[in-house]
Each structure stands twice: as structure tokens, then as C-alpha cells.
Design a protein around this nucleic acid. Sequence first.
DNA 1: CGAGACAAACGTTACAAATACGCTTATTAA
DNA 2: TTAATAAGCGTATTTGTAACGTTTGTCTCG
Lengths: 225, 225
Amino acid sequence: MTVEPIKLTVDTVALAAQEGQLEIVLIRRKHDPFKTMWALPGGFLHEHDESVEQAAARVLLEETNVGDVYLEQLFTFGDKHRDPRARVVTVSYLALLRQDDLKLIASSDASGVAWWPVLDLPKLAFDHKRIIEYAHQRIKYKIEYSAAAFSLLPEKFTLRDLQSVYEAVLGRPVDNRNFRKKFLKLGVLQELDETTQQGSFRPAKLYRFDQKEFEQLPDRPVFSF
Amino acid sequence: MTVEPIKLTVDTVALAAQEGQLEIVLIRRKHDPFKTMWALPGGFLHEHDESVEQAAARVLLEETNVGDVYLEQLFTFGDKHRDPRARVVTVSYLALLRQDDLKLIASSDASGVAWWPVLDLPKLAFDHKRIIEYAHQRIKYKIEYSAAAFSLLPEKFTLRDLQSVYEAVLGRPVDNRNFRKKFLKLGVLQELDETTQQGSFRPAKLYRFDQKEFEQLPDRPVFSF
DNA sequence: CGAGACAAACGTTACAAATACGCTTATTAA
DNA sequence: TTAATAAGCGTATTTGTAACGTTTGTCTCG
């Protein structure tokens, strides 16, 4: 009896924080199985001259036109029947997109690529729902002890922007005053000489994330609110 | 041009805390490449009727005779040239062994299976050193917000035993009095009516881990010292 | 041009947790 | 009986968290 080789794929959960909620890039499948259903951007790892992570980056670029993003391996899903056709093991990744990156994505049903709120997903192909839940949990934890939030923001941002990212990811409101106090004390925010000008209210100071200062912090700094 | 399919393996970092230090099970390779070098217990995933995790459990049992242990996926290593022969991607696992399990392992060079201190490893095959470092980091973090320590202990243990596990994993001494105070306050230790009798000093009370109570704790309880 | 609305920004207090360290108790060996 | 040692108990100080009140700057509208 000849045994089919096990196939390897990569699938990426690409997240962004938009208007206070967490959103994910999904693509509409053009082929069976699960034709016309929504799924994670992903594909087979057939190239032999790239690492698994490079494959994830390549596939994400090919399918959604998003490149140069924060990318981190999540988990490898290898249940027996997760693909109805054959034995397929997938290595999943988490990508964090800045608001700048959003424009790159032609977000329309017609193009087959669209943003969906993580808390209100459509029916998904394969075990992709489970992969998204895993990613959601990961980013929730991660934002409390890493600089992940800054991968979801443009270079310059206000304290409100930063807080909105935390609220989007954690899925709950955060106390304004304690948030600001704690973050400023950490010393990882570089205050700029600029402010937001638009808007009909008081302009807010702009900040930049200070990578150097961040690296001075202890092993697992605590950004919990 | 015909392309070789990518092969999948599993490799397991099996740890135990012995006499205040963290140790790992390694096997001596019988075949090339890296013949006679030490390596992680692991092997190809060729069976089609098992999940990746089941494969890891099976291979660990086959190679070291250790079964029924805590097993958790770590990371999938997929660099291009991590195996000199072919394109091999490996899914790594962390196993935590109780002191009871240690006996199961015929620990001798002759049998090709041996315990090694994590802080003083031999030269290792493939990228296994990197995998062990990853596992070491993971258990260090994990022991501070999970019940991982209890997977390294027998059912009944003293507070000293528990502290020794923390010291072995963290690689540093921990304050005796604060450790005891904090753990007792958490309420996850069930005090038994037994004490240790042997030894030339004051007998210590025995405790049991209370899974039920542990589940009552918040999302990420803090066991840091 | 003054009042109202609103977000930005600053501050205080009470409580809980982490840290550092001193001391007492029960056991065995000599 | 006492010296040695680990087991076990207690207190003071510092640090961090959580909850909330207040002031400041800008725009809009009458």
C-alpha cells in the first residue's frame, strides 16, 4: 500500500484594530472544498527554498497584498480530518497590521478579500474558526506583556489611539486615567512636539514608541489595566 | 523537475526536576546523520491514523518508555537546512515528567537513553539545542502562571519539594517564607494528615494539588517569587 | 464674545500584593 | 542536654492596583 505524503500548509490570522474593534482579513475561497466560504489567507508550502515563516509571509503578500508586517508563529494544527481531502497539517501565524497597511487591502467582496470583526465572524472553512480563537487568545495575553500594541499602530499616535488598541484587543473599556499614568511611567513613549490638529476638540499630543527604552524593561513587563 | 515532498517529524523535550536541578531525557543516535550524537527523542510522522500530538506521545513511549505524561506543543521549526539530508519540518513538544516516571527510563549510556542537566548539555544533533532553549524558556514562564509545577511532582509532596521544583526551573533560589505564605494563601494545596517520616530532621507535612481549587483562580494566576 | 460640550490631561486616596527579613518549633545526632 | 538543621510562623516596608475627582484647552453655537 502506497501512502500519500503528509502535506504542509501555512495559514495566517492577520489582525488590525479599527475604530475600537479588532478585525481580521479573510478571503473567499474560489475552489473546493468549502468553495465560496470565507477562510484564512494561506496555502501549501511547496517551495523548497524558503523557511516556513517565509512561506507564511509570501502567501499573505500574494493573497492580500500585505507585506512587511509583524509575524509570529501560533500553533500547528494536525488533527487527522481537519481537511476532508487529504492529510494536511497547517502551521498557523499571527500577523499584526498597522492602520497604514489597511489601505493596501482592496476590501471588497468582489475582490475576494475582506475585513471581518473578530467578534462577528462568518462561517469559516476547515478548522479556521478554531485557529482564529487561538490567535485571539494569544493577542489578548500578548498585549499585556509585550510591545504588540505598537505593531497595530502607525508610527505616531495619541494616548487615546493606544488605549483604543488595548480596548479593541481586550474587548472591554479601560480606565482612562490609570492607563495614561501607567504608560507614561513606563517610559516607553517618546513625546513628540506635535499634536493632532483636526477634530473639534482639544488637540492631543503625539507619541512614538521607544524600542530602546522598551528593551531596558524587565523580562515580562506588565501592561495590564 | 520532481520535488521531494516535505517531511514532518516530532521531537520532544522531556523534562524532570531532580535534586534541585532541571534535567532532560536525551537519546544517543544510532544512525547517520549525527550518528552517536545525543538528540531529542523524536521521529517521523508516517502514520496516518494519529494526530501530531498522538505521534509525539507514541514516539516518546517507543524511544524512552515514558507514557501518560503532560504534553504540550512548543513550536514548529522549519528552517531550510535544519536537516542536512532533506527538507524536514519538525513539530516540537514539551513533556513534563514526575519523579515516579523517572524509574521507567533505563538511564544508562548503554541503553542509549540518559538524563542530562539542562544547564550542562552535550553536543546535540540538528537544531536540537535551540529547541531545548525554547522549551526551557517556555517552562520558566509557564511555571509562573500555570499548574505546570505539579506535573513535575508526585501526587504527595512537601512544600520544600514544591519550592525545589520552582528553584530548579527558575534556576535561582527563592525566599522560603514568602514562597510558603503565597502558596498557602492561594488555596490550591490540600493539606494531608501525613508527614514525611524519614530524614534526620523535623518531618514535613504532605500536600496534594487541588485541581478544583486551581480552576477557581483567575485567568492567569500569578505564581512568581 | 460668553457658555456649553467634550476630550485631554493631572491628581488623590484606599487597598492589595510583593519584598525583605526576624524569629520560633520539632526532630535527630552526638 | 545541646548543637545542628529544616520546618514553620510572623511583621514592617515598599510597590502596585483600582477607583474616582478635578482642571485645562479647543471647538461650536447662540
